[in-house]
């Protein structure tokens, strides 16, 4: 059976891939998907710790409740973020982050 370290390694790997995507990609929707991947990688850590820290023979459900909250926040975040992207596209006709530089001043 896989050990806790292996789960933490997979989670770290997924988080690093998501971070690489956020830095590399220019399409704001894909950047948003990579953010989702990073959130999911963090929840893998929580579930792994919850399973490996048995309390009275049961997993520690505090961690899984936290994952439940993360998924809720992620769903709300996606809805608001995509609405912002649509509004942005209406105003600028682009979703390429290199063309969206007006905040630079």
């Amino acid at each position: 059976m896989a050990s806790l370290n292996e789960f933490l390694f997979v989670s770290g790997l997924l988080f690093a891939i998501g971070l690489a995507g956020v830095i590399l990609r220019r399409n704001i929707i894909v950047i948003f998907m990579c953010l989702e991947l990073m959130l999911a990688a963090a929840s893998l850590t929580l579930v792994a710790f919850s399973r490996f820290h048995l309390k009275d023979g049961l997993p520690d459900y505090n961690g899984q409740v936290f994952v439940f909250f993360i998924i809720t926040v992620a769903a709300a975040e996606v809805a608001v973020g995509l609405a912002i992207i649509v509004a942005l596209y209406r105003a600028r006709q682009t979703i390429n982050v290199e063309d969206l530089t007006s905040m630079r001043g």
């Binding site: 998907m33 579930v47 809805a79």
Partner: peptide
């Protein structure tokens, strides 16, 4: 990892709802 509920919710919310939203946009 015996987290059946979280696994199912992960599929329902991400693969069901969020992916459809992304594709739609």
């Amino acid at each position: 990892l015996n987290a059946y509920f979280v696994g199912i919710v992960q599929i329902l919310v991400y693969a069901g709802a969020i992916m459809v939203l992304f594709i739609f946009i």
